[in-house]
Simulated assay, not measured.
Amino acid sequence: MSATEVVPFDWHRMFIGDAPWLFLLEIVFRTLLMYGWLLLLLRIVGRRGLAQLSIVEFAIVIALGSAVGDAPFYPDVPLLHAMLVVAVVVFLQWGLAQLINRSEKVETFMEGRPTLVVDGGRVNLQGLKDVSLSSEELFERLRLAGVTQLGEVRFAFVEQGGNLSIFRFEARSVRLGLPIVPPQDLVDSDALENEARADDPHACTNCGDVEASRPAGPCPRCGQRRWIPAKVDAFEDA
């Protein structure tokens, strides 16, 4: 419909349009299908980047934004159709919330489980793979929480909402670990290696595995070959 054909405040066009009433049922079907498809895709992609929103909450933000955004601007989109889409999405969200509250299986399927990414000062490589997070991104999040070396961290979990929760060792129990402060991009690992003795404890720069002396070959946990001296205090000798 062109701008010249639009009759302002044509109530029939604004609320109903020219489609038959049965088309309203098709709108319900379309909304259910697209919302379900959106949830499935978000579940496959995972929690990365969702910040504090759950997958279901993120989906409803997208769905409502699309439904509400079109109606005010396009004269050929009847308001009744947009209102029906919004109502279906809201009630669908309410129904999913009830299912999630009543069923642990539904909650796990929709929102996943917390994922262990650091265990006893070492990176849980499978956990990182499960949440599509790299070691460098994990180290960045740990630095933002004030962690200077991996041996400080007893456990770290990527929660259902994508946030990182960290549980530290007590001060007297802190272990030797991979220094992550300063970031490895700013560290001359070759210079550190030249200053260290071969019989000093060394940490793998990828997974944080600590060996009593500098290994001659790759890391037994992840296969990487870069090692730097392990420390209890990341700022020692800095």
Rank of each mutant, 00 (worst) to 15 (best):
E57D: 11
L84S: 03
Q126C: 11
M14F: 07
L164N: 06
K129Y: 12
L39H: 09
R43E: 10
G146F: 08
A63L: 05
Q93M: 12
R113S: 09
G36V: 06
R43A: 07
S54H: 05
D185I: 14
C219M: 02
S165W: 04
A212H: 04
K129T: 08
A238W: 15
P75R: 13
V28Q: 00
V118L: 02
G127S: 06
G161T: 14
E111G: 09
I16T: 06
F29T: 06
V158C: 10
Q52L: 08
A212L: 12
F109Y: 15
R102F: 12
R47S: 02
L80G: 09
A145W: 08
M110P: 02
N206Q: 15
A156H: 01
P8Y: 04
I62K: 11
R122D: 05
V232F: 06
E159N: 07
F139G: 01
D76K: 10
G127C: 03
I16K: 01
V187W: 09
E193C: 09
L142N: 02
R48D: 07
Y74H: 14
F15L: 08
S132I: 09
D10H: 08
Q160Y: 04
W94E: 10
R172S: 14
K105L: 14
T31W: 12
R43N: 03
M83H: 02
T108Y: 09
R226H: 13
G217E: 12
P75C: 08
L186W: 10
L84V: 01
V123P: 00
A82D: 00
A19M: 11
S173I: 10
S173K: 15
V90F: 13
S213T: 12
T205A: 15
R122H: 07
L53T: 03
T4H: 12
S103F: 04
E159V: 01
R172F: 13
A156I: 03
L33N: 08
A59D: 03
Q98R: 11
V56Q: 10
L38S: 05
L116W: 05
S66D: 09
I228D: 07
V89L: 11
R48E: 06
V77S: 08
V86Y: 01
